[in-house]
Design a protein around this nucleic acid. Structure first.
Lengths: 127, 127
DNA sequence: TTTAATAATGTAACAATATAACATTACATG
DNA sequence: CATGTAATGTTATATTGTTACATTATTAAA
């Protein structure tokens, strides 16, 4: 598993080339000319890419983005600023917030595993 | 709009009675004996209840919970601790985190509108 | 108390998102 | 080259959510 498979690579490249999150069936549509034929194939590739930390799911949009960071493996906690107008996504990391979420969990006797933070608003271009 | 309609009330009560988030089609199934007949009706009731702040959607689960707070109107920012094992949900408010998210937005020239924070982990009962 | 506006309903069809099941092929590695 | 694991191909189906359109309540003024 050093290299991505053809389907994985195809989906990953498409996401990397996009400035917006893409939906699974848009990915399917876009990659059909490249040989991907069914939703299953798209979702399988996405699952693998997500597992590798190369792609993240935007839960509030049922859409997917390539990870914008370098060494992104093994991280399934995400933090996004999402522009309501242009759909632009900014991917963040914030240790302070992560720490605070951990503390909050402790306070409730819960054990923290991972988080999804999605802020919607308008980005600098759209303000 | 002081009172909820029958469908709204029916869906709301079901959610309030539940200790777990419910999915739309579970709600449909459960309320069929009470007169609700189609997904549309469930989603319409949910939309209204969400608009009123009486129900929230758990984005990472496509499921819905009754708001656990008193004066909850007009708030579409949510913060949940979600137990992976028992699906128990704790609904939180944390002004410190909200402030920090606001600041983060400012730093990127973005305007904050609302947020979705979903932490998954295990709750005190399941630890 | 009619009338007009708004909110909610009922019903059917459909669109969008995601998974299951099962047979097959590629490929690393011992 | 045998064997196990990962990935693929294909079809069907399950789940989640929306559109469209006709109808009925409800409210609140004229």
């Amino acid at each position: 598993m050093l290299e991505l498979s053809f389907n994985q690579e195809t989906v990953h490249k498409l996401l990397q080339a996009s400035d917006k999150p893409l939906k699974a069936y848009n990915i399917l549509f876009e990659t059909q000319k490249l040989g991907i034929k069914s939703p299953t194939q798209v979702y399988r590739a996405l699952d693998k890419l997500i597992e590798l930390g190369k792609v993240h799911k935007i839960e509030s949009k049922n859409a997917f983005v390539a990870c914008s960071k370098i060494n992104c493996s093994n991280q399934n906690s995400t933090f996004f600023l999402i522009c309501d107008d242009c759909e632009n996504i900014i991917e963040l990391e914030d240790q302070k917030i992560t720490d605070q979420l951990n503390k909050t969990c402790e306070k409730f006797g819960s054990t923290y595993k991972n988080h999804t933070i999605e802020i919607s608003g308008t980005c600098s271009n759209c303000n």
